[in-house]
Amino acid sequence: MNLTTKKVATDNIEPSDPTDKVIIRKYCCKDREALRTICADTGFLGKPIDPVFEDRELFADFLTRYYTDMEPESAFVCERNGKVVGYLIGCCKPRLKFWYHLLYDPLLFFKAFYRYFFKPYNAATKKYIQWVLTRGWRETPPAPKDCPHFHINLLESVKSPNTTRRLIDSFLAYLVSKGHRKVYGQIVVFGDRRKPALFRRFGFEVINSMEVTKYKEHYPSKIFLFTVVKDLEKRPLLYSK
């Protein structure tokens, strides 16, 4: 398969079912605040991040700002009745992202440092920051270098296999149209959700995983972060063979 010449339309992907009010489309600047709100509303295992980390602004800055401000062309949103209810943010320029965080993250650090002592943050938020500084980097599994990646979040009201497939397939088709051959994601796994067999069903290979302890006081069971990789030459879409 010639990945560099395959033509895929990704600007507006209409629902296959005309009665389905959910559409998948490319991200635009007017979606920024809605995307940031969803990030905070789903930040704690699909629920609002507030009980764990109260600073929604800083949380959204760290997790979404690069994607919305530096690489918006690689982002997609899920919209229902004119309202953004989910998103997929992707990175096809990992070196740019590296330099962005190298330059921008110190500013986030100083904001967090100031608010830690002078706002001040509550006890749960302080513990979360302590985890980020002392354990976060150690509990993040390795990822492939110079490889595109993505993050996906949907509000509970629109979560479904069909919506998730359409959103991910839109990004995968975009990658193929740009000539990319692989993509990875780092997926939170807890309880009975997202077992390795499920990833394999969709053409993803689990290459490593690590236990994440940042929610230990808020969730009774173990939580893991899996790094999964998909070969787009073999399976360019989620359900393709």
Rank of each mutant, 00 (worst) to 15 (best):
R135G: 08
Q186W: 02
L167W: 01
K182N: 09
R193L: 11
V176Q: 07
F171N: 05
K178E: 07
K182Q: 14
Q130A: 14
V132K: 12
E139G: 00
E205D: 13
L167D: 04
C147L: 00
N162P: 11
R193N: 11
P196E: 02
G191I: 06
R138C: 03
V189C: 02
R194M: 11
G191M: 04
G136C: 03
P161E: 08
R194C: 06
I168V: 15
R181K: 12
K182G: 04
W131E: 00
S209E: 13
L175R: 05
D192Q: 12
H151F: 03
E205P: 03
K127I: 03
G136W: 02
Y128E: 07
F204R: 00
R165Q: 12
V183A: 09
K195T: 08
L154C: 05
V158N: 02
L155E: 10
T134F: 13
T140E: 11
K182D: 08
R193Y: 12
V206P: 04
V176T: 06
P144N: 06
R200A: 15
I207T: 15
F204W: 07
G191R: 06
D192N: 12
P142A: 10
P141C: 02
H149G: 07
A143N: 07
E211P: 01
P161K: 06
G203C: 04
Q130I: 10
K195F: 04
K145Y: 09
F150H: 01
L198C: 07
K159I: 08
L198K: 14
I207E: 05
F150M: 10
G136H: 03
H149N: 14
P144H: 04
L198P: 04
L155C: 05
P196D: 01
H149T: 12
L133G: 04
K126V: 01
G179Y: 01
L155S: 06
R193P: 08
G191W: 10
W137H: 10
V132T: 12
L155W: 09
R194A: 10
F171T: 09
S170Y: 01
V189T: 10
R200V: 13
E205W: 03
K126W: 07
V132A: 04
F171D: 08
S157F: 05
P161C: 09
R135D: 14
R181T: 11
G191P: 07
G203L: 00
V132L: 14
S160H: 03
N162A: 11
L172H: 13
S209D: 12
M210E: 15
F204V: 09
P161L: 02
F150E: 05
F171E: 10
A197D: 13
D169W: 01
P161V: 07
W137R: 12
Y174E: 03
F171S: 07
R166F: 14
H151Y: 03
L167N: 02
I207W: 10
D146E: 11
F204I: 05
M210C: 14
R201E: 13
N208W: 05
L154M: 15
I207V: 14
R181Y: 12
V132W: 15
E139H: 01
V189G: 03
F190W: 14
T134M: 14
V188P: 09
P161N: 08
L172Q: 13
M210Y: 14
Y184K: 00
